[in-house]
Design a protein around this nucleic acid. Sequence first.
DNA 1: GCGAGGCGTCAAGAACGCGCCAAGACCGTC
DNA 2: GACGGTCTTGGCGCGTTCTTGACGCCTCGC
Lengths: 226, 226
Amino acid sequence: MARILLVDDDAQLLRALRINLTARGYEVITAADGSGALTAAARTPPDLAVIDLGLPDLDGVTVVEGLRGWTSLPVIVLSARDAEAAKVAALDAGADDYVTKPFGMDELLARIRAALRRAAPASLSGDATITTAAFTIDLAAKRLTTAAGEVRLTPTEWHLLEILARNPGKVIDHRRLLREVWGPAYGNETNYLRVHFANLRRKIEPDPARPRFIVTEPGLGYRFTP
Amino acid sequence: MARILLVDDDAQLLRALRINLTARGYEVITAADGSGALTAAARTPPDLAVIDLGLPDLDGVTVVEGLRGWTSLPVIVLSARDAEAAKVAALDAGADDYVTKPFGMDELLARIRAALRRAAPASLSGDATITTAAFTIDLAAKRLTTAAGEVRLTPTEWHLLEILARNPGKVIDHRRLLREVWGPAYGNETNYLRVHFANLRRKIEPDPARPRFIVTEPGLGYRFTP
DNA sequence: GCGAGGCGTCAAGAACGCGCCAAGACCGTC
DNA sequence: GACGGTCTTGGCGCGTTCTTGACGCCTCGC
């Protein structure tokens, strides 16, 4: 089920939330401060984040902005204050929802459900299979079959192919590819892309020397053309 | 701009909301009861709906379910009651957000912005295309097609064209073009512009010697005329 | 009429981005 | 501890793109 990142410096509350969420089948990872939250999100990207505004190191709004730089996962902000200005700032920074402490657990759970429900179609986007003249991608099952049979891809190769396949015809930035696959700290290591796309092409392109589906747009990025 | 459907039986509140929203550039349609809301939404589909829970005819939750049957537009529910059960019911019925009366106008506006921002990529996707008599620019996919077929542009050519195309009809300063493409340290190297615009014109103008779409404004800058 | 500045054009060298190869580092499994 | 798979890192060659300088044309002001 969905993985949720909890960020709060109140150990009590963190524990209560973790118990409630795991009891309902969510996978929970936690962080006690802002920088910890950002690294945790980069290491094991969650499907949703619940972030307290009053963190010991960074402002909650800063954390939201840090996440929004490279991912569009839903963010629910918690806050002890009822200040309207803080709500507006957090929402405009990219947060999806705002819950004021003290809150009822059922309400938070309902808001989490609502946020995940909204995000679901975007990430799973309808048919989870994409077919081209040379191969078929089953995104849900993580399977790729060519005329010659099934092809095994490494995790990184999947990640790259998935991003391209979800935006068919569009050029995807070097930076965006690096950030989404390797984390927000990356952005200039284009050699990573060169190597992994070379491997990917060798596995799925009929003629890897003259790629037809994974096209390079020099200086811009890569494009998937079905 | 975005069209918003307001549903409330309190004429006072309806008026206040309408004034605030139209002042910010939203198009507003209103309904005073549930059935009116459903027919209004069907006739002129809004981009977002704000629905009061306590309506004279139908329950607000019923209205949300009625909308969810055929559209996925974002719904924000208003309610005078602070009952948690009602919040949970509304959110699980498909509402995206829940605001308890009395609420601050700024907060509601921020929540509307957040909901619209979330919905934007799904409904606008691929809308970033500009068409002229000679070619069409797809900014999202970084594609430019003329009558003769697709044309490949270099990164700098894209950058320059994009700036002009996003401000159609407006003259863009030499300095601004240089700063946006080459960085803040540049500002006087107008020869760069001459060379790259010459290349660009050779690729996209029907008669590069007599440019029709990328016009030079001597001493000022360049202008894009669709 | 004449000079100055702005612009378009061209061509050559420099710089860059990309594909490719191969060796080393890392990690979990047996 | 050996092993296979995967990811990182560095280097090389090639083609493209960018930069740079030079030249001629046009317009405008004197």
